[in-house]
Design a protein around this nucleic acid. Structure first.
Lengths: 171, 171
DNA sequence: AAAGATTGAAGACTCAATCTTC
DNA sequence: GAAGATTGAGTCTTCAATCTTT
């Protein structure tokens, strides 16, 4: 496919590597969690978000937004998590249309059991090779890319107010 | 989940963003390709790899390696691509165990039709916000992360010998 | 009509089992 | 026995249709 060069050499090399990261990193995390904790990375992420939310519960639509997922996908996942006793559905008191997902004690324990192995893998694969300056650089670059993906997104990105602060299960 | 802080604040912020990129970037590329070209990002990637290979063909195992996929996944995908007339299977002359996937003219045309839109999106989402120095930095960081994912991987990473050089459909 | 959510069907990926050739 | 590849079953995701509440 030859056309006027869309990407220069440097961009192409970066893209090949970024594409590989985007393909392999999730696969690696997925494999570890599935093997050691019997849950998917996405399920872990959902449990972690709930664990950091007030009352350990969130509306499904809000949870979907924070998890970067569609509402449909989230609803299916919550159904599975509920079947395992890790989450329960609860009617929202202020808006009868809404449903809240609430993390159970069993769900919290499952998350707590899974967290060390998962966070350990994140650290060893991503951060062990990076110095403090590079970590900041990585964060900055990812922020720029995210801005490129969704130009229109409303104000707060919502990550600021996480109750647990650092050391949480999100990594 | 409170435990001795596994990740410091800076690492946690970077990780949240990297996780979002890893979740959203594929989704954005997927949506565009599906809508405009009727193919998945992975299918596009496979066609692009074949288009850059000698004879426009590769062994399935080699193709799987270059595409960062399992052989099983690749076999399923090749079956679908074959059903659409974009690829054909061919017995390998030197090793009767092996199967080669060969890009057809129709497949090449489909790739050529899909490439501008796809590469355009890659450029606008990822590279438009980045200066030359940042692109190199991104490439370097991704390389480091990849090294962390697979410590044991054998010698050459195999990207060097791509026939088409820059301007190819890989982006 | 829009927002929040659920459901079922279709398509894709993973895993394990299987087959052939080296 | 190991490497290359295929297949089928089970699971997950997406998409569209549907339902209720605002």
């Amino acid at each position: 496919v030859d056309e006027p060069r869309w990407l220069d050499d440097e961009q192409q090399r970066a893209w090949r590597r970024l594409a590989a990261v985007v393909l392999r990193l999730p696969a690696a995390l997925e494999a570890q969690l599935q093997r050691d904790a019997g849950m998917s990375h996405f399920e872990y992420w959902v449990l972690a978000l709930l664990s950091e939310a007030g009352e350990r519960s969130l509306r499904l639509s809000e949870l979907a937004r924070q998890a970067n997922a569609s509402l449909s996908r989230l609803s299916h996942v919550v159904t599975r998590l509920q079947a395992r006793g890790w989450v329960v559905r609860e009617a929202d008191p202020v808006d009868a249309r809404a449903t809240r997902a609430v993390l159970t004690d069993a769900g919290f324990e499952a998350l707590a059991a899974a967290a060390p192995g998962h966070v350990g893998l994140v650290r060893s694969t991503v951060f062990d090779g990076l110095g403090p300056h590079e970590v900041r650089e990585l964060g900055r670059l990812c922020e720029t890319i995210l801005a490129g993906i969704e130009p229109a997104d409303g104000a707060g990105s919502g990550v600021s107010g996480a109750p647990l602060g650092s050391g949480g299960a999100l990594g």
